[in-house]
Nucleic acid binder design. Structure first.
Length: 818
DNA sequence: AGCACGCCGACT
DNA sequence: GTCGGCGTGCTC
């Protein structure tokens, strides 16, 4: 007997063993998608993980019910990749599978119920039934076939199970198990000539239609229309609308054998409408960089390309893609967010036409499934352009992986599991496939930069800007001084105000950037501007107004607010909160003529609103755009001559050891928005802490210096890139139970891991949907075995769950949290 | 993820 | 006294 270990796409640990019926012995292979029954009559699509002949002990096996499709299976390497992801990110394989497969590919059965034939005879007297049972009968008579969920919905209650089961026992209603294959090809009906007719034949047909006026008219119209528009066929709906407007006439013509309706499978995937053009020639600098990258690939699989903004990285990617395609291999081009990169899609399509497949989270599930199948079939897209989830698509001969803007934190998935980083997953996918990997960024992540410096990655820099683009002029303005002199105009310093005035008077545009990451409040000295940090963690502390204390999100330490500033000894701490919609009001007050719009969360999350806003700004219907970090990414507006950063200190003051790295990156990105073409743009950055090292270094455009300075501290405090982090989050409804469990877990882990354990500490949002949360952070220095550490952590958590202190506490792991 | 089993509070 | 709320554990 053959057995298959199957991964069920649920958040359950490990796999389940099923027996393979004889009829499937040859079609079931490792990677096959199979329908299995799991828990009662629920069915799931699982992935075969292993095949063997050892009869399992301790339980009966159920049989595999069906193989989804002959010959359709995940390749061994694809499966291997998914399992790596599962292990690395401490996520059950089922959950990885769930993330990897589009919903319609992991079809789940629903139990369909209906009245059995001849139920009337079985039920002599309806008074035998309970009130609930009669209610259920009522809805069945009305609706016929239904699944459980629908019955509940119609009766607006959740406890129909007992009554339904009673009816089932009485054999009045029956179960109809149907596995609905949701993946049905999308079809369209088209109308065309049944065959080619000569003009004499057509005359003959028309003569025969003298009495069928509608058909006669339809045929004449069609002859005229098809000639006029040079079309041979039309979609049926369009045909009826445009020609004759009579379904009956069409039917008649089909019956006469003049026309026919054909069913065509259509693709749900976007079709490229770009005209395929030439690849731009590279500048001398770009040419050299391309050569350097190719040179690195002789000995290294992964190369970091650091290219300043506007240096033309994309053009280099295009040349690399072209080369890869020439070798008959596939390319994966990863972007942090697809919505903001319409420009790149267009550009790639212009060069590679319909060889480019786009994959993103906004796609309909059926379209995703179609893309999946296409990539697994005989004619896959050679180039896949997509967001992080594109790493889950099947690849057959991957030759190149490009991760653009590799430092972007949106590559990391937070919720739900798997909490993976698209960049790191892509690197692993590339390695497993024997592909070359290119990471691109203007401000690389410290992790990648360190790998480049250490020689683990190849390192290539592109320092010259393409064309005549100039780096904008950066002006740091001290808000503290103007505040003291009472010269602020709302939230604008006189400098920013004057610049805005000048730009707006010239009919040019302004972007105002306001950071809004998280909700925390921090304390800053009103005199020297220094931000209060934790003594143990090198992270700014979060201020809680209601109890007037400071809390570190990393180690959990608490302290009172010092009476005077720790740095200058004279100033006092003031409460700072990243501002909100006030900016818009101030713009309206000081620039009543200006047309202003805000790009905040509700705009970004709505695709239509977002596009409308971008279009308005692009076409000049708006003068001032206020936004969060979204405005800093990937958008090019020619007429923007000024960018104002309202309060840069809120970037630096964020309670995260990466705050400064992010602040630097954001300021660089934001600067890149100003004056991309023509006249040199300006960036006004309003700060309080003028002396902050981040500002000194942004001004100098010295990434390496910035890295060197900050990395010393990272090393001292044992933060990435000098260590790896694993965050353990515990959740429970009871705050006290949770805290006790966390303390106990941390204590036990410390016995072995000692100072590598930080916390427990409260996250910035400590209670979500009635559940309290608490976090323990593990720092693993280089050289410590990560896989052994993970086993240890998991073991400790499992042990805790079994003791009374840990009862009911849920544990979540986040490997390499951001 | 569901769904059953099982234990405690608001009603007949 | 029961009904039914939800917490806990299992599913091949």
């Amino acid at each position: 007997m053959l057995y298959a270990d199957v991964i069920i796409p649920l958040g359950v640990e490990s796999f389940f063993t099923y027996s393979v019926p004889e009829e499937y012995e040859h079609s079931v292979t490792v990677g096959t998608l199979v329908v299995v029954s799991f828990v009662k009559n629920k069915r799931y699509t699982g992935v075969v993980y292993a095949l063997h002949t050892n009869p399992p002990v301790g339980f009966e096996t159920k049989p595999i019910e069906r193989v989804i499709e002959e010959g359709f299976a995940l390749s061994a390497s694809h499966l291997k990749f998914l399992l790596w992801l599962s292990e690395y990110y401490m996520t059950p394989p089922g959950e990885v599978t769930r993330a990897a497969l589009p919903v319609s590919m992991r079809l789940e059965s629903y139990t369909s119920l209906s009245l059995v034939n001849g139920w009337e005879e079985k039920l002599a007297d309806e008074s035998e039934l309970s009130r609930e049972e009669r209610e259920i009968m009522g809805v069945f008579r009305e609706r016929g076939e239904m699944c459980m969920a629908e019955v509940e919905k119609l009766l607006k209650r959740k406890d129909v199970y007992v009554a339904v089961r009673a009816l089932l026992e009485k054999e009045i209603i029956g179960i109809k198990e149907s596995v609905d294959d949701l993946f049905k090809p999308k079809v369209e009906r088209w109308v065309r000539w049944k065959r080619k007719f000569s003009s004499e034949e057509l005359d003959g047909i028309l003569d025969g239609l003298k009495r069928a006026k509608a058909q006669y008219k339809m045929l004449c119209d069609w002859v005229y229309y098809s000639d006029e528009h040079h079309v041979e066929c039309l979609p049926r709906t369009e045909f009826v609308q445009k020609i004759g407007n009579s379904v009956a006439a069409l039917k008649g013509l089909c019956e006469r054998g003049v026309l026919e309706v054909i069913v065509r499978e259509v693709s749900r995937l976007e079709v490229s409408e770009e005209e395929v053009g030439e690849v731009h020639a590279l500048s001398e600098a770009q040419e050299k960089v391309l050569g350097d990258i190719l040179g690195c690939y002789w000995e290294k699989d992964c190369v970091l390309l650091q290219g300043v903004t506007s240096s033309g990285k994309t053009e280099i990617y295009i040349h690399l893609i072209q080369e890869t395609l020439r070798q008959g291999k596939q390319v994966l081009y990863l972007l942090p967010e697809i919505a903001l990169t319409v420009q790149i899609v267009k550009r790639l399509r212009r060069v590679f036409g319909d060889q480019v497949g786009v994959y993103h989270s906004g796609m309909a599930d059926s379209a995703r499934a179609e893309m999946w199948r296409k990539q697994n079939g005989t004619n896959p897209y050679p180039v896949v352009l997509g967001v992080r989830s594109s790493v889950f698509l099947p690849y057959q001969r991957l030759g190149l992986v490009i991760v653009d803007e590799e430092h972007e934190s949106s590559y990391k998935q937070k919720e739900p599991a798997p909490r993976y980083n698209g960049r790191d997953a892509a690197i692993m996918l590339g390695k497993m496939s024997g592909a070359k990997i290119l990471l691109g960024s203007a401000t690389p992540s410290f992790e990648s930069y360190q790998n480049a410096l250490s020689g683990k990655y190849g390192f290539v820099q592109l320092t010259t800007r393409y064309g005549e683009v100039m780096m904008p002029e950066l002006l740091f303005v001290d808000m503290k001084e103007y505040r003291r002199k009472k010269m602020m105009k709302g939230c604008f310093t006189p400098v920013l105000y004057e610049e805005m005035k000048r730009v707006l008077e010239n009919g040019m545009q302004v972007i105002l950037f306001q950071n809004r990451r998280g909700y925390s409040t921090y304390l800053q000295c009103d005199r020297c501007g220094s931000i209060l940090k934790c003594k143990h963690c090198d992270v700014s502390m979060t201020y809680y107004r209601y109890r007037n204390t400071l809390n570190c999100h990393y180690c959990g330490s608490l302290r009172a607010v010092p009476a005077v500033c720790q740095d200058c000894g004279q100033g006092h701490y003031v409460n700072r909160t990243p501002g909100t919609e006030r900016i818009e009001e101030d713009v309206k007050q000081y620039f009543p003529e200006a047309r202003v719009a805000r790009m905040d969360l509700d705009v970004i999350s709505n695709k239509a609103k977002f596009r409308a806003l971008i279009d308005d700004f692009e076409s000049g219907n708006l003068d001032v755009l206020i936004g969060t970090q979204m405005v800093s990414k990937g958008l090019d507006f020619e007429r923007v001559k000024l960018v104002g950063v309202m309060d840069a200190d809120s970037l630096v003051g964020f309670p995260d050891f990466r705050a400064e790295e992010r602040a630097y990156d954001m300021l660089m990105q934001v600067s890149g928005r100003s004056g991309r073409k023509g006249e040199r743009g300006k960036v006004v950055i309003q700060v309080v802490d003028r002396q902050n090292r981040v500002y000194q270094l942004v001004g100098k455009e010295d990434y390496h210096g910035f890295y060197t300075l900050l990395s010393r501290e990272r090393e001292m405090f044992n933060y990435p890139p000098f260590s790896r982090l694993i965050q353990i989050e515990l959740r429970h409804v009871d705050e006290v139970v949770l805290r006790n469990a966390a303390n106990e877990l941390a204590r036990q882990m410390r016995e072995r891991l000692e100072r590598r354990v930080c916390g427990p500490a409260e996250p910035d949002v400590s209670r979500v949907r009635k559940m309290y949360r608490i976090q323990i952070l593990i720092k693993a220095e280089q050289g410590l075995s990560l896989s052994k550490l993970k086993i240890f952590l998991k073991q400790k958590c499992d042990e805790l769950a079994k003791t009374p202190v840990g009862k009911g506490v849920r544990v979540y792991f986040d490997v390499d949290p951001l």
